[in-house]
Amino acid sequence: MRVMVFVKATEDSEAGLMPPRETREMLEAMGKFNDELIKAGVLLAGDGLKPSSEGKRVAFDGPSRTVIDGPFAETRELVAGYWLWEVKDMAEAVEWVKRCPNPMFGPSEIEIRPLYEAADFGELLEPEFGKEIEKIRKNERL
């Protein structure tokens, strides 16, 4: 089972605040945690995200596209970082998150969401399209 693990943003992360000493300690702790994920074969990808002030959104309405510049409202709904993990089930993902060092300087939250797999679509998915999805997932050429 693949899951996306979101580190939720805080006012500090959105402001780009990184006190030097605490940042080094946090990065070292997170590096050790990531090493554990790698050794366990869980970590597929992951990274931190810059504040939403450096981002853009594209709003869709039929054929219309509107570009919206950051920063975005509702900090608690934003993502400051992510991991992509391969775990046996949601319980394993929760156990890994519980072992994670606090990713922020104060109260923080991590969200875990399962990814759709081709099998989730059952008969709705043509076999050839399912093969194409797997190739994309594995970064193979179509």
Score class of each variant (00 low, 15 high):
5 V>C: 10
5 V>A: 06
6 F>Y: 11
8 K>Q: 06
9 A>M: 08
9 A>N: 08
10 T>F: 10
12 D>S: 12
15 A>K: 15
16 G>S: 02
16 G>W: 02
17 L>K: 15
17 L>G: 07
18 M>R: 10
18 M>S: 05
22 E>K: 08
23 T>D: 09
27 L>F: 09
28 E>N: 05
30 M>K: 04
30 M>G: 02
31 G>Y: 08
32 K>H: 04
33 F>M: 01
41 G>W: 11
45 A>S: 15
47 D>K: 12
47 D>H: 01
49 L>T: 02
55 G>A: 11
59 A>F: 08
59 A>K: 13
62 G>N: 11
64 S>I: 02
64 S>Y: 00
66 T>R: 09
67 V>K: 01
68 I>C: 09
68 I>T: 03
69 D>F: 02
70 G>Q: 06
72 F>R: 06
73 A>I: 00
75 T>L: 03
77 E>N: 07
80 A>I: 11
80 A>D: 14
82 Y>D: 12
83 W>S: 10
85 W>A: 09
86 E>M: 03
87 V>H: 08
90 M>Y: 14
90 M>S: 03
96 W>I: 07
98 K>P: 00
100 C>N: 13
103 P>R: 08
107 P>L: 12
107 P>S: 12
111 E>C: 05
114 P>G: 00
114 P>I: 00
114 P>V: 01
118 A>Y: 02
121 F>E: 03
121 F>D: 01
121 F>A: 08
123 E>T: 09
127 P>K: 08
127 P>N: 05
128 E>H: 13
129 F>L: 14
130 G>R: 08
133 I>H: 01
136 I>K: 13
138 K>C: 02
138 K>F: 09
139 N>P: 00
142 L>A: 13
